[in-house]
């Protein structure tokens, strides 16, 4: 955990401007990502995970607007830059080489009328014009071999590949220009558990080899607990808890984190009755004055409705819950 910071996100807020008023999909998000770290982001649909991804990669399109905050990127050499303030032209130079993304639906991300190899050489030669065609094809072969695809599949079109192969080639494509940061948005939801595990084991192996950092977004907390170094739990556009995988699993602090953890039945541990989290997420267009989780929280009390609790460091993790406010008399009641 002593690696230098790669990305510092500070007070990031994203609004969706709609005719019915604006909805804040990400609210005051702050975290630091270290070099080579895997940060998992978990939450229900509508919690703002995907909005966070598009904001981090500066890929968002109207009606989404970054309304506040900074995303400071620390390159290996050179001065830190704030990605929010960068022009599209300057960002374009950073994409692929420093910042890459793996999307959820591999079929939609690969060009259906280009051969797989051509999609690799396209990227490679755009970012390194000195590379000739044959060398780029050679390099494309090395990249797909890295993810377990035979280089003789390079002339294939995307529809000729299986779902797992398409997803793996997207991962290889993201690594084509040796980026510092790879952002992954549910990269394995469309593939089976067996393939999922093989893909993720490969991501971990490649991370050991190349040292890139990963922001991994998924709704599947049970998967993140195995994969990520640290996990941020999002609810209604805010990070409600962030900490190491082991701490979050064994000692969750926020009632939402607890509920989410207990929403996944165990595979081997003794069975007990689990109840999930009753209720449904709030409407982001009409935010509550207090904690957004209050109406669904089993430990809600008067203090929850007063103000949105800030992230506080409690033991090894940071948590946004009034139960950990030293000023709150209810806090002492908590074990």
């Amino acid at each position: 955990m002593t690696d230098p910071a790669l990305l510092q996100v500070d007070g990031l807020s994203v609004d969706y401007l709609t005719p019915q008023g604006s909805a804040r999909a990400c609210s005051d998000i702050s975290f630091t990502l270290r070099r080579g770290e895997i940060l998992g982001v978990a939450g229900e649909s509508g919690s703002g995970k995907s909005t966070l991804i598009t904001a981090l990669t500066r890929l968002q399109r109207p009606p989404a607007v970054t309304s506040a905050g900074r995303i400071v990127y620390h390159p290996a050499d050179g001065e830190p830059v704030d990605l929010v303030a960068q022009s599209e032209r300057a960002l374009r130079r950073r994409r692929w080489r420093q910042l890459a993304i793996v999307m959820q639906s591999a079929m939609d991300c690969l060009n259906p009328v280009m051969r797989l190899g051509a999609q690799f050489t396209d990227v490679l030669r755009t970012h390194d014009p000195s590379l000739d065609r044959a060398a780029a094809w050679q390099r494309a072969g090395e990249l797909v071999r890295m993810v377990g695809i035979a280089p003789d599949r390079l002339p294939a079109y995307p529809h000729e590949l299986s779902g797992g192969m398409r997803q793996r080639s997207l991962i290889a494509l993201a690594l084509a220009c040796d980026p510092d940061l790879v952002v992954m948005d549910e990269p394995t939801t469309a593939v089976d558990v067996v393939m999922q595990r093989q893909i993720l084991a490969q991501v971990l192996r490649l991370r050991e080899r190349f040292g890139f950092a990963v922001v991994f977004v998924t709704h599947d907390l049970s998967l993140l607990l195995e994969l990520a170094d640290r996990i941020a739990i999002m609810y209604a556009g805010r990070i409600v808890e962030i900490g190491s995988s082991a701490d979050l699993y064994h000692r969750p602090k926020h009632p939402y984190t607890k509920g989410l953890r207990d929403s996944f039945p165990p595979l081997h541990a003794p069975l007990r009755e689990l109840s999930g989290i009753p209720g449904s997420p709030p409407d982001l267009r009409d935010p509550l004055p207090g904690c957004a989780f209050g109406p669904r929280c089993p430990r809600a009390h008067a203090a929850c409705e007063q103000a949105v609790p800030p992230l506080r460091t409690v033991e090894a993790q940071d948590v946004a819950c009034v139960l950990y406010d030293p000023q709150n008399p209810e806090a002492t009641a908590h074990a």
Binding site: V193, Q196, R197, D220, S222, E226, H250, H268
Partner: peptide
Amino acid sequence: LDSSPDPGRSL
């Protein structure tokens, strides 16, 4: 079974 996520096991 080996492929299914089980945080209890790995952690």
